[in-house]
Design a protein around this nucleic acid. Structure first.
Length: 572
RNA sequence: CGGAGCGUAGCGCAGCCUGGUAGCGCGUUUGGUUCGGGACCAAAAGGUCGAGGGUUCAACUCCCUCCGCUCCGACCA
């Protein structure tokens, strides 16, 4: 391809719309253009890179035995009523009505459609296992789209769904997808790592997210350097590390007018936040329960909900709190409470703490939790942070940021029950299929590559996803001898299957060098009168400062050899 | 949805407080000088100043309403 014919304009300035480096670079390098918030057009260069990612995904899905299908993005809302997700995912879905006033949705994901499909197609155990996938545009009415392709209203996702005859067989399908994901991200040149994850609204029992470490990531990842345990902060656990507090005298009521928050109390008592116990009153499916966490910690509502096995968990309103504790909000405490009380593990053995007294404007000091209150259970309740003990090995863990590029779930029979997706086993009995689902944010993955691979000058594409493997700079477009070398090289390289972008513009060399760095082709080849006079063309890798001068007749071989080496370095 | 900010040429911005009919840089076009890391000189094209309404002799500027965008928060595969 000749740059002079490409619809490609690079920008010198960072776009005002962009916040993170990958977004800035993708706009500056002419890969994407914004239509409106969370909606982007892929320009020729960006689309080429996107196709490369899609093809890697497709190859690895096929290799793992999954079959490609394509389901409609437009779906009847009725399907979502059957699974109950019209309510739970409700506001996040785009809805519209057809002319018959039938409620439709633009699919944010396809569990419903695919389960309904397979329920009809599969009738015998002989047809199982079966994994299908698609690469398709998804729609989510994001509350706040941001970071370009990272969180968009419309995005491309690869979603796969496995159907099996048993939990064990489903585990094998899950593992096959997990392994395919490892390969996919490796081939994209991404440093992505699997972490244990929460299942969210999709439901199900177990899941892993594939995270690309990046400071701009929207998710917190808890990581244990000692043993390798890694989990999304939403789910991360911590070890039982009982407090080692000394004995203390009996509880003492203290006047604390208007001191409702931990900040108020630390100011009033002049001691650190962890000496207080926060008592949070929740309604779990309508029934009041209390959660106790150290004053400097936050409750992880996901974990609490899972522990209680509750469908719905909300913070109690002021009226309920007053009814349950006998005191206004801000003065709740465990002592004397009759509702179930769950305390975080770190409060095991906690003594001499300060808590609300369940009486207006009053707190209790010298509270020894197990002596003075009846705690139902000590469990893992807090949002885990840096320094907490690893649940596997007990060593301190770290917190990092990550971009979620893939997510694999074991769903069990959650959806097959809703859609009555059964098959006949070898004894002629009807059984529910066991499902798994597996997503990769294709557009997000592309941006994650840029986020992880760039420098001050621009993008550094791994060759596997580069729009063009080679940027061929024609420095003297008016010099017939130079042009002849470029024409020849372009053809030879194309014949060897390499994507070449020839910068044939009437620009000064400096402009071409800058743009070549910006758009980030892994191999840069410079052909100019000066270079030819010195004996050849110059080959340079985007990742290196080193320039190699190669005689014209050996150039194609040398370039192809570099391309092969770069490709092989990415192959698992 | 709550808080904050912004909307002026393709892109990045100034002008607005203190009303007088729009400017800078980049990019684009033409000519010239240049030519190995975003050149210089000269000329030129390009703007319903987000939209609607109001105040005024006069509105980019002041007031009201709406729309869009960005950031923080809540929310989220």
């Amino acid at each position: 391809m000749r740059w002079s014919r490409l619809l490609l304009a690079t920008l010198r300035d960072d776009p005002q719309e962009a916040e993170i480096v990958s977004h800035k670079l993708m706009v500056r390098a002419g890969l994407i253009r914004k239509l409106s918030g969370g909606l982007y057009t892929f320009m020729p260069l960006g689309l080429r890179a996107l196709h490369k990612v899609s093809n890697i995904v497709r190859e690895e899905m096929d290799r793992a035995g999954a079959q490609e299908i394509l389901m409609p993005a437009l779906q009847p809302a009725e399907l979502w009523e059957r699974s109950g997700r019209l309510a739970t995912m409700g506001p996040g879905m785009f809805r519209l009505k057809d002319r018959a006033e039938r409620l439709m949705t633009l699919g944010p994901t396809h569990e419903e459609v695919v389960t309904d499909l397979l329920a009809g197609e599969v009738s015998s155990y002989r047809q199982l296992p079966c994994t299908v996938y698609q690469i398709q545009t998804k729609f989510r009415d994001e509350i706040r789209p941001r970071f370009g392709l990272m969180r968009a209203k419309e995005f491309i996702m690869k979603d796969a769904y496995s159907f099996d005859t048993s939990l064990e067989a489903a585990d094998a399908s899950y593992q096959a997808m997990f392994d395919a994901y490892v390969r996919i991200f490796q081939r994209c040149g991404l440093d992505a790592r699997p972490v244990e994850a929460d299942t969210g609204d999709i439901g199900g029992k177990w899941s892993h997210e594939f995270m690309v470490l990046a400071d701009s990531g929207e998710d917190g990842i808890i990581d244990c350097p000692a043993c390798g345990y890694a989990a999304n902060q939403e789910r991360a656990e911590h070890a039982d590390t009982p407090a080692n507090d000394p004995e203390c005298p009996s509880p003492l009521a203290v006047d604390t007018p208007d001191a409702r928050t931990i900040d108020d109390l630390t100011a009033l008592f002049g001691c650190p936040a962890d000496r207080f116990i926060k008592t949070l009153i929740y309604l779990a499916d309508g029934k009041p329960v209390a959660a106790l966490v150290p004053g400097d910690r936050d409750l992880n509502e996901n974990k609490f909900k899972r522990l209680l096995n509750a469908k719905q968990l909300v913070m109690a309103d002021d009226t309920t709190i007053e009814k349950v504790t006998g005191a206004p909000t801000g003065f709740s405490g465990p002592v004397g409470l009759t509702i179930p009380i769950y305390a975080d593990r770190t409060l095991h053995g906690a003594t001499d703490r300060t808590t609300g007294a369940n009486k207006a404007d009053t707190h209790l000091t010298h509270v020894s939790l197990e002596r003075d209150a009846s705690v139902t259970a000590f469990e893992d309740l807090v949002i885990v942070g840096s320094g907490d003990a690893c649940p596997r090995c007990g060593k301190p863990m770290q917190i990092k940021r990550g971009i979620e590029v893939g997510h694999v779930f074991k769903l069990g029979t959650k959806y097959t029950e809703s859609f009555d997706a059964t098959y006949l086993n070898d004894k002629g009995q009807s059984e529910l299929m066991v499902m798994g689902c597996y997503g990769i944010g294709v557009t997000r993955t592309l941006q994650a590559v840029v986020e992880q691979s760039h420098d001050a000058d621009g993008i550094i594409w791994p060759i596997s996803v580069a729009p063009y493997a080679v940027s061929l700079l024609l420095l003297d477009p008016k010099d017939p001898a130079v042009c002849a070398v470029v024409d020849d090289l372009e053809q030879t390289l194309a014949a060897r299957g390499l994507d070449v972008l020839v910068d044939d513009r009437e620009e000064r060399p400096g402009v071409k060098f800058k743009d070549a760095d910006l758009i980030g082709s892994p191999i840069r080849v410079v052909v100019g009168a000066k270079g030819l006079a010195k004996g050849g063309v110059e080959i340079k890798l985007r990742t290196s400062k080193e320039v190699t001068l190669v005689p014209v007749e050996q150039a194609a071989d040398a370039i192809a050899a570099q391309a092969t080496a770069l490709t092989e370095a990415l192959c698992p």
